[in-house]
Simulated assay, not measured.
Amino acid sequence: MPSEQQARAQAAAITPGRRAPEEEGETASPAERLQVLFGGHRLSPAQRRIAQFLTDHLTEAAFLSITELAERVGVSQPSVTRFASSLGFSGYPALREALQPIALSAVAGAPDERRLRNELQSAVDAEIENLTSLRRVFADPDRILDIGRELARSVPLTVLGLRISVSLAEYFAYAARRIHPDVRVVTRGGSVAYDGLLQAREAGGEWVLAFAMPRHAKETLAVVRAARRVGLRVALITDLTLGPLVDEADVVFSAGTGARLVFDSYAAPGVLSAAILQAMADADPERTQTRLEKYEQAAEQYDFFMDD
């Protein structure tokens, strides 16, 4: 975590990637300075609400007491204190002291603020950056193709996703069942997860595909370790590049998540998941074709879908 002095310096800094103000002949805008201050930190949904309120109501919010700010945002006072600490400040008063010069500059340059992109566009831009990074990873597709072959051969194949990662796991499993004969989903931790892992291993399974997105649950790490204990190998899709989850996995694929809105968005992990599904399909094209044809026949027979 940065020191309070570093955090104060961030508040006066320019956006990463921009030239220094003296090189551009201009100073960073208040919105850019806030982005530098709040960016680069993994904030909880409640903390993101505070950051968004400060961004949207800067000229007023920078002068509110902790009680007033908590009431306006709809969070507790300890949440505001934790938010300030997560940015590297000793407490809310120190954060407010850093915000006030930015607020005063916003008052002085208010007309310029109207030209800034809105927060939703910024969120899309951040996801574009995540997808661009993933595109560079796909320049060498061998690792994707290799794990596709391994997962295709694992019968059954277990897919793990707990808490916020459930949706990604269920999407992957839903599609994988169209091309794979036995896909099992684990979306609960504890002994229920252990039972599922043990049964999958006893049935001949070799791999678990695990999703671990922020905020990373301790129970995900426990289930991954349990999978290793029963003899399963683990392929991990996460936003992490370091840490105990990465250390426990046999294969790791990292894809950035969008963190500009109150809740994360998953454009890059979604594309990565689809790429692995494609690799699984290509690993056994005859089985894939047979299963897809049978599914289409069933869909037509039982009238699953509306006509376009």
Rank of each mutant, 00 (worst) to 15 (best):
V223H: 02
V224G: 07
V224A: 06
R225F: 12
R225V: 13
A226K: 09
A226C: 10
A226V: 13
A226S: 15
A227V: 10
R228V: 02
R229C: 01
R229Q: 09
V230M: 03
V230P: 05
V230K: 08
G231E: 07
G231M: 09
G231I: 11
L232A: 08
R233Q: 15
R233L: 13
R233K: 15
V234M: 11
V234T: 11
V234F: 10
A235V: 11
A235L: 09
A235R: 14
A235Y: 09
L236R: 05
I237V: 14
I237G: 02
I237K: 00
T238A: 03
T238F: 05
T238P: 07
D239P: 02
D239K: 00
D239F: 00
L240F: 10
T241N: 11
T241G: 13
T241C: 06
G243N: 13
G243Y: 12
G243F: 12
P244I: 13
L245Y: 12
L245A: 13
L245D: 12
V246S: 04
V246A: 06
D247S: 15
D247G: 14
E248F: 02
E248H: 03
A249R: 07
A249E: 13
A249T: 08
D250N: 07
D250H: 00
V251Q: 15
V251C: 10
V251I: 14
V252S: 02
F253W: 04
S254Y: 05
S254H: 05
S254A: 11
S254N: 08
A255R: 04
A255K: 03
G256I: 01
G256S: 07
G256T: 00
G256N: 07
T257A: 09
G258E: 02
G258S: 09
G258Y: 01
G258N: 08
G258P: 09
A259F: 05
A259K: 11
A259Q: 13
R260W: 01
R260L: 06
L261T: 05
L261H: 06
L261A: 11
V262D: 06
V262S: 01
V262I: 13
D264T: 13
S265F: 01
S265I: 01
Y266T: 00
Y266C: 00
Y266D: 00
A268P: 03
A268R: 01
A268H: 00
A268V: 00
P269C: 02
P269E: 05
G270T: 14
V271C: 01
V271N: 03
V271R: 06
L272C: 03
L272M: 08
L272K: 03
L272P: 08
S273T: 15
S273H: 04
A274P: 03
A274Q: 13
A274E: 11
A275T: 09
L277S: 06
L277E: 02
L277G: 07
Q278L: 14
A279W: 07
M280H: 06
M280F: 08
A281L: 04
A283C: 09
D284F: 14
D284Q: 15
D284Y: 14
P285Y: 11
